[in-house]
């Protein structure tokens, strides 16, 4: 009985693994995000670490400000889809993307800092 459960679980895990590899061949980045359902963007040197980040629907993206100067993460859309409070050094902001689409954003203090999240 125990053995048959073990075998069944093993088969299931193997099937999952194969599925992941297949999808990964098409678009490895998307699959990585699907698995984790979270992604990180570091703010360094007055720029967003991923100028264009692609994630799957439901992913929570967390931004961390690693600069000595405060920044914000502010949606460029009107109305704004998300807007962080000002982030001082090492402070974080998270937002969960529940709908597919392209989400441009910028730092409202240093508007030359722009990037986007693509949700698929």
């Amino acid at each position: 009985m125990r053995r048959s459960v073990f075998v069944a679980v093993s088969i299931a895990l193997a099937a999952l693994g194969i599925g992941t590899i297949r999808a990964g061949a098409k678009n490895p980045r998307v699959v990585d995000e699907q698995k984790a359902q979270s992604a990180e963007v570091k703010i360094d040197n007055f720029s967003f670490g991923s100028p264009e980040l692609t994630v799957s629907v439901g992913t929570t993206v967390t931004w961390t400000n690693r600069d000595d100067i405060p920044h914000t993460v502010t949606s460029s859309d009107d109305p704004k889809v998300f807007k962080s409070k000002v982030l001082d050094t090492d402070e974080k902001f998270s937002f969960t993307f529940t709908k597919a689409g392209t989400y441009p954003y910028f730092c409202s203090i240093h508007p030359k800092m722009t990037a986007k999240v693509i949700v698929q």
Binding site: N45, I69, K112
Partner: peptide
């Protein structure tokens, strides 16, 4: 102080 224009990587991604 801040760096003179163009004399450092930041501010800005340029």
């Amino acid at each position: 102080p801040q760096p003179q224009p163009g004399k450092a990587d930041s501010p800005g991604p340029m």
